[in-house]
Simulated assay, not measured.
Amino acid sequence: MRLLRLGGGQMNLYFRLLLLWLRLRRRGAIGLWDTAVTPFRVVPTDLDPFGHMTNSRYLTIMDVGRIDLMMRSGFWSKMKDKGWYPVVAGQTITYKKSLQPWQRFELRTRVLGFDERWGYTEQTFCVGDVVYAQAFVRTRFLKRSGGSVEHDALEKVAGGFPVDREVPNWLVELTAATRIEGSAK
């Protein structure tokens, strides 16, 4: 009964998560450091009054893309076993072209890396090789029992962090510049 009372955006998210779950086995496993390519189509509930995909829907779809990467890489089940969960701490997105009704597109999600506090992910909306939007997401992993997951524990569960990947300096600087006064360190 609760699902019937949810708004269109929440129903859209749950529907897309159900489709993702149903397609997981067919799509196959990937590594946590690979790029997850998740297919989508713009549906009428994605549209704003101007007839293209609304800004907020991009963020919802990005959630699904990150879940796709974590589930297909096996990281999702490892997190759940530890009692951890990810939260978005910040994100920036640049829109280059509008996605139109019924247009097929794919979301390419890849982990850029980690620093001592944050995980950084790049997510790109593409139609073929054309980039429609690109986002960078800063995440943190929390424990259901309270507190944040320590860097070393996260690295161990992830199977190590690649040494050949670096978070771009501009993204680290943006993180520092957007720190809200009075927030936890």
Rank of each mutant, 00 (worst) to 15 (best):
E166Q: 13
G51M: 03
F40K: 05
V64L: 04
Y85W: 09
R140H: 03
R5C: 11
D164P: 09
D164V: 03
M62G: 02
L32F: 15
G51L: 11
Y85P: 05
F136Y: 15
M79Q: 00
R26C: 09
K96G: 13
A133P: 06
L20V: 08
E181A: 15
G128M: 00
L20Q: 06
Y58S: 02
R16G: 02
K82D: 07
R66V: 00
R26Q: 13
V111Q: 07
F136E: 11
Y58F: 12
A158S: 07
I180Y: 10
E166M: 11
R26D: 00
L19M: 15
L107N: 05
D46Y: 02
K82N: 12
Q100G: 11
I67S: 00
T178A: 02
E150S: 10
N12A: 15
G28Y: 02
C126L: 08
L24Y: 02
N12F: 09
S145K: 08
L154Q: 05
R2C: 08
T124V: 12
Y14R: 13
K82I: 05
G8V: 10
L154E: 08
H52V: 07
E106T: 14
R138F: 06
H52Q: 08
L13N: 07
L13F: 13
S73I: 10
F136R: 08
M79L: 14
V87I: 11
E106Y: 00
V42C: 10
K185T: 15
M70K: 04
Y132E: 05
N12R: 15
L24D: 01
A158C: 08
L19D: 12
M71P: 04
L4A: 11
G90S: 15
G9S: 12
M79C: 08
V172S: 12
R27T: 12
E155F: 14
V43I: 12
I30A: 04
D68L: 13
E173S: 13
S183P: 03
D48F: 01
D129H: 11
F50D: 12
F141H: 02
D129R: 14
M70F: 15
A153I: 04
